[in-house]
């Protein structure tokens, strides 16, 4: 009976793991290697150039669940905190990253613009992209 329970628990665990959605931070092929702290700084516009390449962060629309997931897991900031952050940056003369409506637009932009960085569902990754980081829910 114990073995059956253990096997069942293992199966549930594997199922939950595989069911969890996977996401990825992607970049243009020629973008220099980036770590997570750099990604955070890029999306807060504290870092705009690396190795003389201008880095262009791309967001999805504010209410897109993937953007909310990215802000929570990668930026570690709530929507309200980001709102206050960008109001302060507006006073200092800085703008938030550009936003796009769909992952399709994001993919096309990242493939064509050197230095572009974005996040997408991992299922949309293809060979023309450089994958910087992956995470799950």
């Amino acid at each position: 009976m114990r073995y059956i329970l253990a096997c069942f628990s293992l199966l549930v665990l594997v199922f939950v793991q595989s069911a969890a959605q996977e996401y990825a931070i992607i970049a243009h092929k020629k973008t220099p290697p980036l770590n997570l702290e750099q990604i955070r700084a890029i999306y807060l516009k504290k870092l705009s150039r690396i190795d003389n390449t201008t880095i262009v962060p791309v967001n999805l629309n504010a209410k897109d669940p993937l953007r909310q997931n990215f802000e929570k897991h990668i930026l570690h900031m709530s929507f309200q905190r980001l709102k206050s952050y960008w109001s302060r940056q507006h006073y200092l003369g800085y703008r938030p990253p550009i936003s796009m409506k769909s992952q399709k637009s994001v993919l096309s932009f990242v493939k064509n613009v050197a230095g572009a960085v974005a996040y997408i569902d991992a299922s949309n990754i293809d060979d023309d992209l450089h994958v910087v980081y992956r995470w799950r829910d």
Partner: peptide
């Protein structure tokens, strides 16, 4: 302003 960024700034 000089800024150095790695894992901290």
């Amino acid at each position: 302003t000089y800024t150095s960024f790695h894992t901290t700034s």
